[in-house]
Computed example of a mutant assay.
Amino acid sequence: MGVHGTVAAGFEGVREEFSAFLTDEEHAPGAQLVVHQGGERVVDLWSEGVGGESLLGVFSSTKGAAYLVTALLVQDGFLDLDRTVASYWPDFAAEGKGGVTLRELLAHRAGVIGLDAGFTAEELADDRAIAARLAGQRPFWQPGRFFGYHAFVIGALVGEVVFRATGRTLQECYEERIRAPYGLDLWLGLPQSQEPRFLSTLPMLPTPEQAAEIEAAAASPYSLGGIAFNEHAPGNGELYDFPNSRAVRAGGQASAGGLGSARGLAGMYAAAAFGLNGRAPLLKPDTAAEFARIHSEGTDLVGGMPKAFGLGFQSYGAHFPVLGAGAFGHSGASGSLALADPRQGFAYAYTRRRYAFPGGAAPENTRLLGAVVRALT
């Protein structure tokens, strides 16, 4: 399969690693890979089935944009991590949630992972509607005591705090403060004019072994995981199809509704940690370190798997040994992964069109990150 794009001198091994796994049907629909060394783009690759400028559903990699907005507002003094969510949003205090702080919410410790009855498709595409429904929801565990991935709703919950504090939606803040000034191809609310660049997400094609594993691991739709992914709601669609809805793309749902390219994702993390296009870094070192610092670690109650979260961001220094301590970013269900590693001086983004198994950062990211670090050192 053909690989297109460019790499800087010394990064030829990254191209070789990228091309090595693009021979099976799972990867045939295409993938993108971009790396910045500091503010300079040193890897810009894509395979057959996509273009370098194609826009893909990035699922939960969207959350990185939501957390970056939040970090900037904390840095600027508009938000205080240790104030209660209810001090910004009084309705949130219902059902024993009055003591939940913004810090606990960002660390996935609030316990408000979904609704008892589930969301309609229309509600799930609209962050303000999600927040309005969740304000009165009883937590699924004692807030602050445990943690679990607020998969479909964390962007709406944090976004409501942003709205109450600033009078602007999280999507508006992102557009005005981050996307437009840097010309980033990562959209929280895709304009109609950009629709021709969008490539729909395709379902995974599990091998027989993977299909058996999926069946064996299937949880009840009424489990914590089922509720967090809205599987118990009548008529709930397939997760891979979420960004294929124009309503989701237009609304820019901040948990999983972002559309972008690897260029857009890597550019965002480069802008955050190192600066881009002659601009200073968006985040001061202390802010980046605080949001990357592990706040929740252990077994995630929702996924039942080991996880490490900072403030919103996944703490990848604890997951990928090749990364430096304090690396922060987020993965998406399609297999995408985007992050910054401040200690080693690079930003990374990988996207793919075929939905990944088992979801989250696709396995090839381990090999690709290894190749990047070898090239840097």
Rank of each mutant, 00 (worst) to 15 (best):
Arg164Ile: 05
Gln344Pro: 07
Gly111Glu: 08
His232Asp: 15
Arg103Gly: 06
Gly329Tyr: 04
His4Lys: 09
Thr120Arg: 05
Phe78Asp: 05
Gly303Met: 09
Pro243Ser: 12
Asp341Val: 04
Asp82Leu: 12
Ala125Trp: 07
Leu157Ala: 07
Leu105His: 05
Tyr88Cys: 12
Ala31His: 02
Phe119Asp: 03
Ala288Thr: 01
Phe119Glu: 04
Gly77Pro: 02
Phe59Asn: 01
Ala292Thr: 01
Ala66Tyr: 02
Ala349Tyr: 03
Asn277Thr: 11
Gly118Asn: 10
Gln192Pro: 06
Phe78Leu: 07
Gly237Lys: 15
Gly52Ser: 10
Asp24Ser: 12
Phe242Gly: 08
Glu213Val: 15
Thr70Tyr: 00
Ser54Pro: 00
Trp46Met: 00
Leu311Glu: 02
Ile130Asp: 01
Asp82Asn: 13
Lys97Arg: 11
Leu170His: 13
Pro306Glu: 06
Arg177His: 14
Pro29Trp: 04
Gly52Tyr: 01
Val7Pro: 05
Arg164Leu: 06
Thr169Asp: 09
Arg249Trp: 04
Tyr355Glu: 06
Pro196Asp: 08
Leu368Val: 14
Ile227Val: 14
Leu368Gln: 10
Gly251Glu: 05
Gly324Ala: 06
Asp24Glu: 10
Glu16Trp: 09
Ala93Met: 09
Phe119Val: 07
Leu68His: 01
Asn236Glu: 15
Arg279Glu: 06
Val69Arg: 02
Leu190Val: 06
Pro306Val: 08
Gly13Val: 13
Val372Cys: 05
Thr6His: 13
Leu45Trp: 00
Gly226Leu: 12
Leu56Ile: 01
Phe291Asp: 03
Ala217Glu: 13
Lys97Phe: 07
Val372Thr: 07
Glu290Gly: 06
Glu25Asn: 09
Phe11Ala: 07
Glu290Met: 11
Thr120Gly: 12
Ser261Gln: 06
Thr287Lys: 05
Gly275Ala: 04
Thr169Trp: 08
Val35Phe: 03
Val372Asn: 04
